[in-house]
């Protein structure tokens, strides 16, 4: 009797330690790959400054992107300001277009027409998230670019085309965050507002949307992060010229598209190649910042108690 109890106890212990082992391994793999990727990109990215001796200031604040300039003419220079500005402008404009649309969609789905909205509109918006970015780029290239060229002006490959494509791509991100946030509000808020003699619109605008603002900010930051990191679709429609844009009809280049454009053509270890890694590092840092904002900024920026 006693033996069988011990046996059972031990076998339970064994299965428990096996499960523990498996989950720990899985967790370790995730942690190790994150750390190695970060270390690898950092080493590669920092070599521009350590091995090639480019100053951080020049890298970040110069618009001269001349990685193959011969020494006789002053040597190569890698200033990525134009790329940074391009990325920022395109992503922020995308959010500017997408955020109001998302608010409208989320309010429609949660408050105005829950039946219709949750049955048709919400799945439709979620499908948008599943469309591969190359398809977005392709549609942008074959519909949006010619449309802009013929009807608005310029080459068609432009900031405008870039942020319009992006704004559709990030719509689902912002909408789903907002939907969750609106749904989590107590039903009482709306009723309390109506019971004070507000219209439904006043309740939505003055109580529900402000109460859901943490979801809105989270959605916007995540959308911004997605827009910032998107490469393919953007690259296909923005023209990729390495100069500062002066209007939204000008072609532009972003950090991501600059990397994808050049990465196949440069020898490993060259300044040019290292500079691309530095841009990758910059993207990584930016996305860390976005994640930090979501994790700490939003919570603190929420309702102070």
């Amino acid at each position: 009797m006693k033996n069988s109890f011990v046996y059972k106890y031990l076998s339970l212990r064994n299965s428990e330690s096996l499960g523990r082992f498996l989950t720990t391994m899985a967790a370790l793999i995730a942690i190790v790959s994150t750390i190695t990727i970060v270390v690898f990109i950092s080493l590669k990215g920092l070599s521009t400054f350590t091995t090639n001796g480019v100053s951080l200031k020049e890298f970040l604040f110069s618009t001269n992107w001349l990685p193959d300039r011969p020494l006789a003419e002053g040597g190569p220079q890698v200033g990525v300001l134009a790329f940074i500005i391009g990325s920022l402008v395109v992503s922020m404009l995308a959010v500017l277009v997408s955020a109001p649309l998302s608010i409208a969609c989320a309010v429609f789905i949660v408050e105005i027409a829950p039946y219709w909205g949750q049955r048709f509109l919400q799945p439709a918006i979620e499908l948008l998230a599943g469309i591969p970015s190359v398809v977005y780029g392709y549609i942008g290239l074959s519909v949006l670019v010619p449309f802009i060229r013929d009807n608005i002006g310029g080459l068609g490959f432009s900031v405008l085309a870039g942020f319009l494509v992006l704004s559709v791509m990030i719509l689902p991100t912002i909408v789903s965050m907002l939907i969750d946030s609106l749904k989590s509000l107590p039903r009482d808020y709306k009723e309390a507002s109506l019971a004070l003699g507000s219209t439904r619109w006043q309740a939505i605008r003055l109580v529900l949307i402000p109460a859901a603002r943490s979801g809105l900010v989270t959605g916007i930051v995540l959308g911004l992060a997605r827009a910032f990191g998107e490469a393919l679709a953007v690259q296909m429609v923005i023209g990729n010229t390495r100069v500062m844009p002066t209007s939204i009809l000008d072609p532009v280049i972003t950090l991501t598209s600059a990397i994808t454009m050049d990465m196949g053509n440069t020898p490993m270890g060259s300044l040019w190649n290292n500079a691309l890694w530095s841009m990758g590092l910059l993207l990584l840092i930016m996305s860390f910042i976005f994640i930090l904002i979501v994790r700490y900024g939003v919570r603190r920026g929420g309702i102070s108690r």
Binding site: P186, D188, Y189, E191, A192, S193, A195, G197, P210, A211
Partner: peptide, 13 residues
């Protein structure tokens, strides 16, 4: 004209 107080206190956030 006819106001209402609810079961659970529900001040706005």
């Amino acid at each position: 004209r006819i106001g209402m107080v609810f079961q659970r206190p529900n001040p706005f956030p």
